[in-house]
């Protein structure tokens, strides 16, 4: 697939062109927090960022969304409320988060049941990745089969080489974009490609957290009853920061909202870390304490998900580590488990 170059001062032009044809989601900074949001003008996009605090999963799987509506007094139909299928570009997604979307696809687009709310938003989206030239100390994507410049799940990949980006078309969709907006791109010189390789190599070298996770699933098979969990869960507060900010966590709740005679059904993020998540109407709760709930989070990502979908449900983005109120560090847990 082809590689081009774009000067940084041409980025504005490129984004403006994209904005004419697509709804563009890009990293923006509000109140010191970086998140992905629909932008109206190219100037809103942040080019210099580590990663967003809330993962871009929220574009396809928002914190809460309406599923259908009905009239309570006169129940003759349930009116489906589906998101519109607009053409979107997700600009600036990091490779780890792109991989996370592929993992979410496995859940929401499983052979038995397809989730229309997720899929309608997901389908018409072009993924323009921004290679991760400055991995953070909490990043450990390479332990999970990812890489700062992994192309998995992307249509285009941008690599920052100083005053310009090398842009690689990965899929046909990506190539089409390169052709369609060829006026903003230049031919990539040999030196550009060499620079790109160097940036990539350097980025990989910057990742210091390395955990050998090949055997984690097998290891956890024997860990369910282990006293290990009694020890590690103690400091966990039981909030949902780790799961809500996780790019692969997908648990949700479903609820009805009523107003006068109209009713609506919503779904909203939920978390296995909440005590009430598994509480049954009878009062019985299979996951009684924080111990069971912390165990569930680790087991689900590194064992159950693997058994169901063949991959670990963690991409090593480090959000749960950076944002945990008590500095609960999943890397330490994993290191201990594999050692």
């Amino acid at each position: 697939m082809s590689e081009k170059v774009i000067q940084k001062n041409k980025m504005v032009d490129f984004l403006n062109e994209l904005l004419k044809a697509y709804k563009v989601f890009a990293p923006v900074k509000r109140d010191h927090i970086v998140s992905f949001d629909a932008i109206q003008s190219s100037g809103e996009m942040l080019l210099n960022y580590l990663n967003s605090r809330i993962p871009p999963k929220e574009i396809f799987f928002p914190r809460s969304e309406k599923m259908f509506e009905y009239i309570r007094d006169d129940l003759i139909e349930v009116k489906e409320v589906l998101p519109s299928e607009e053409r979107k570009v997700l600009f600036g997604i990091r490779p780890c988060d792109a991989k996370a979307i592929l993992l979410l696809d496995k859940v929401f687009d499983s052979p038995d049941y397809q989730d229309p709310y997720y899929l309608r938003k997901r389908k018409e989206t072009i993924f323009v990745g921004m290679g991760c030239d400055r991995p953070q100390s909490t990043c450990f994507c390479t332990s999970l089969g990812g890489a700062p410049f992994s192309e998995e799940g992307l249509d285009l990949l941008f690599t920052n080489i100083g005053d310009r980006f090398v842009v690689k078309g990965i899929t046909e969709e990506g190539e089409t974009l390169l052709e369609k907006y060829e006026q903003v791109f230049e031919r990539a010189k040999k030196s550009d490609l060499d620079d790109k390789l160097n940036v990539e190599k350097e980025a990989v070298n910057r990742i210091k957290s390395k955990i050998a996770l090949e055997k984690i699933e097998k290891r956890l098979d024997k860990m369910f009853e282990d006293s290990f969990w009694d020890r590690i869960y103690q400091k966990c507060l039981g909030c949902a920061v780790c799961t809500y900010l996780c790019p692969t966590c997908h648990c949700f709740d479903i609820t009805d909202e009523t107003m006068d005679t109209s009713g609506e059904r919503f779904r909203a993020w939920d978390s296995c870390q909440f005590a009430l998540f598994t509480l049954q109407a009878s009062g019985h709760n299979p996951r009684m304490s924080g111990k069971e709930r912390v165990r569930q989070r680790i087991m689900h990502k590194f064992n159950y998900f693997v058994k169901n979908y063949g991959e670990i449900a963690c991409v090593g983005c480090g959000r749960c580590i950076k944002n945990c109120p008590v500095n609960f560090d999943i890397r330490q847990i994993l290191l201990e488990l594999v050692s």
Partner: peptide, 30 residues
């Protein structure tokens, strides 16, 4: 709605928080 504020507060120790109650549900989850 991650409830980290509640979870971190030393004085939030109710067995069931008002925001989680469902009979009746005081506060919608959206």
């Amino acid at each position: 709605r991650c409830y980290a504020c509640r979870s971190a507060c030393p004085l939030c120790y109710c067995e069931q928080c008002f925001v989680d109650q469902s009979q009746p549900r005081w506060i919608g989850i959206t």
